[in-house]
Design a protein around this nucleic acid. Structure first.
Length: 686
RNA sequence: GGGCGAGUGGUGGAAUGGCAGACACGAAGGACUUAAAAUCCUUUGACCCUAAAAGGUUGUGUGGGUUCGACUCCCACCUCGCCCACCA
């Protein structure tokens, strides 16, 4: 008897056609079945997919199918996170317009997804670089602007003088431009920000609502928000009548302050030193520190440097007169931009004091082991008992933290403060391939939002991509020149575009009404379908994308546009596929194309292998032999089932004979025959 | 420095308090073949015993603990990985 061949091309072609034909993946909005929103992070159309991507989409596909089979009304859609730098770089390099490049890539990747057998409701496909999508990204910007959550301010950015452009932090490698290797400098530019810091506490509190999230992602979010409780302590600057505020989480060390240091950007520096002999040295130092570049300056290994301002402040609790320094390790963005220096109990202050011979004063002693300021090799940062601390002597320092705080507040010398590490979200990009920021500048009326009726602000097609210091849009007169919506006078448009993370911070709402041209999303629909029941994506988005999406969702909630506070109920972060010791990626040149494998073994082999390669949340090493194993496994399985089919068919014939001969007590229903033992059918065939 | 996670055969890994090593890779032997490939079958943690089988001992990073019973739970330690980190 001839064996049936496992012809995966026919099988997969047949079923993929069947699924498309019957609309298996079309969510039925009228259905009364319980909903299940299964979402994979939408891809950046970078070219072609490699097997590493497969984990995301195949796992998502499996979850969606499983829930379908369990009787849920499943929504599983996909789209394209289609704005971004690679398209623009491709344009600079190869001369293809980003729109064309992106469109081609989408076409290729769509085909690949289809061959993989992953199913989506393609009617809901969205593309973030299309005007019908970014119109609503701009609309969201306007909502934030209206509510004072979008604002413009001067900010230090990474600047490459040779490429004449702004760089993202990720593009700065060891303080140099990744493309041309020139030294990156800090430059102050007017930038747009979203006031995410205003939502720091809500974002922190609602981490508790993220029950279905991996613990480590939640921890990463909490750490990123970085709440610290402390106190702002006011120091009087001697002989000036000015006050200097320092934020500290360790008021128990207040008696050990031997200097105060300021961030190089601190505005008070000018006032303190102007006209003094120190002026030039201090300003030179501050300039140099500012130019050091944030990445380098905030690296831990960087040597602590500073300069004395010639001024002194008075410690409010013991009237100690301590010098004021400017130091490169103090950050203007955090706390008050001024730090009280306690070398005995803070390692950074210790190193600084050692370098500049500043006194070290011990105010906390470990129990049963006296410290010696002259011989100590590092700061003592652990708990202990207060000494040299006036009325607080003898208290455990953990208690002193509270007592000193109360004392200072009572005397009006300080204010209890909560500080967050989270900074406002810089959304300006001096780039072409992004959604234009919908703002108009009128000389008479000032900064104005583009009226909603004038959206979208269309990205012009014909531009020069080569970087030369400003957004390529700066040179497109037909774009820049516009009319003031208020006074109808001449006005010009904002030329920056938005960070692509803005595009991706709300796309999951758009799937519910992808073609609606009157609103970004329909409140009733999103309230029904969200939060997303299962979100699946790479752990590399554990902070930014997920935090931004949470933020935008909370803003929309506060505006009464959605009735849920968190967008994603369950989150699954799949591990990366590793090859030759590194993450599989085009830039590393270690990619494996799914197409070749599908031709050779079929999509199911690859799907099986991807699911089987290891625990899905862990990284896994790609192994070509493993693919072979999955292929053999499927073929054996196929063989067993087809063998079984024959046995089953024969048993049915026997049953008919038995039923026809009414003399025996033939069973009414033929029980399925026993699964043949592994030997039987094969031996017979052999 | 802080946080999180992981350590099981030659390899990827399975088992969430109840027969450790599913399934797959690799390896060895066999069938088929003129031969090879492919395919199929058998064996495969280590050690002891045996002509062979049966049998036995041991075994989940290390050390302790809880339990009738621990890869699994608790404590300490070691190693590796990832994320964050001059955040006051």
């Amino acid at each position: 008897m001839a064996k049936k061949e496992y012809n995966f091309t026919d099988i997969e072609g047949k079923w993929q056609g069947f699924w498309d034909g019957c609309g298996l993946f079309c969510a039925d909005e009228a259905s009364r079945k319980e909903k299940f929103y299964c979402l994979v992070m939408f891809p950046y159309p970078s070219g072609t997919l490699h097997v590493g991507h497969g984990r995301n989409y195949i796992i998502g596909d499996v979850v969606a199918r499983y829930k379908m089979m369990k009787g849920y009304n499943v929504l599983s859609a996909i789209g394209w996170d289609a704005f971004g730098l690679p398209a623009e770089n491709a344009a600079i390099k190869g001369g293809t317009h980003p729109a064309v490049w992106t469109k081609n890539n989408i076409k290729m990747m769509k085909k690949q997804l289809h061959r993989w057998g992953v199913g989506y409701d393609w009617e809901r496909e969205i593309t973030s670089c299309n005007p019908d999508y970014y119109k609503w990204t701009q609309w969201i910007f306007l909502k934030l602007y209206e509510n004072n959550l979008a604002y413009k301010k001067k900010a230090a950015v990474n600047w490459c003088p040779s490429c004449a452009t702004v760089l993202a932090n990720e593009q700065v490698v060891d303080g140099c431009c990744e493309r041309c290797d020139s030294q990156v400098r800090q430059r102050d530019l007017e930038q747009w920000f979203f006031r995410i810091s205003q939502y720091a506490q809500k974002l922190l509190d609602d981490v508790s609502l993220l029950e279905g999230w991996p613990e480590r992602v939640k921890t990463m979010q909490v750490n990123w928000i970085g709440r610290s409780e402390g106190i702002r302590i006011d120091f009087k600057v001697e002989g000036t009548g000015k006050t200097l505020s320092c934020f500290t989480t360790r008021p128990d060390t207040l008696y050990g302050v031997t200097f105060v240091s300021l961030a190089p950007e601190h505005p008070i520096i000018k006032d303190l030193i102007s006209g003094t002999p120190q002026e030039k040295t201090v300003m030179d130092f501050a300039d140099r520190a500012r130019n050091q570049g944030m990445v380098e300056r905030t690296a831990e290994g960087t040597e602590k440097e500073g300069v004395f301002t010639g001024k002194y402040v008075v410690n409010p609790v013991n009237n100690d007169k301590v010098p004021v320094w400017v130091a490169n390790y103090v950050l203007m963005e955090y706390g008050t931009g001024a730090v009280m220096g306690v070398p005995a109990h803070d390692q950074r202050d210790f190193l600084f004091a050692k370098k500049y011979n500043l006194p070290i004063k011990i105010v906390i002693q470990p129990e049963g082991n006296a410290l010696n300021a002259d011989t100590m090799q590092e700061a003592y940062i652990d708990d202990g008992i207060q000494i040299n601390s006036g009325n607080f002597d003898g208290l455990p320092n953990t208690e002193a933290i509270n007592k000193v705080t109360i004392h200072l507040e009572f005397k009006g010398l300080g204010t209890k403060t909560v500080t967050y590490r989270l900074r406002d979200w810089l959304i300006s990009r001096q780039r072409y391939w992004g959604a234009p920021i919908p703002i108009i500048y009128c000389e008479k009326c000032g900064t104005l939002p583009v009226p909603e009726s004038q959206l979208p602000v269309i990205l012009p097609e014909a531009v020069e991509f080569k970087p030369h210091g400003m957004s390529p849009l700066a040179e497109v007169d037909s774009f820049i020149n516009t009319v003031c919506p208020k006074c109808s006078g001449t006005a010009r448009r904002e030329i920056d575009t938005m960070d692509t993370f803005v595009d991706s911070s709300w796309y999951f709402l758009r799937y519910l009404s992808p073609k609606d041209d009157r609103q970004p999303f329909v409140t009733k629909k999103v309230n029904k379908w969200l939060p997303v029941d299962q979100y699946i994506g790479g752990v590399e988005h554990a902070i930014l994308h997920l935090l931004y999406s949470r933020f935008i969702t909370k803003v929309l909630y506060d505006l009464g546009l959605v009735n849920f506070k968190e967008p994603f109920r369950h989150l699954f972060t799949q591990g990366m596929i590793i090859k030759e010791g590194a993450k599989m990626s085009k830039s590393r040149g270690n990619v494996v194309s799914p197409d070749i494998l599908i031709d050779k073994y079929g999509a199911d082999t690859q799907r099986l292998y991807i699911l089987f390669i290891g625990p899905p949340q862990k990284d896994a090493e790609w192994n070509e032999l493993g693919v072979l194993g999955a292929s053999r496994f499927l073929r054996r399985l196929w063989q067993k089932i087809t063998d079984y089919e024959e046995v089953y068919a024969r048993a049915q014939r026997v049953d008919i004979v038995m039923r026809v001969s009414r003399y025996t007590q033939a069973p009414r229903f033929c029980k399925p025959p026993r699964m043949p033992s592994s030997q039987t059918p094969c031996n017979r065939h052999n």
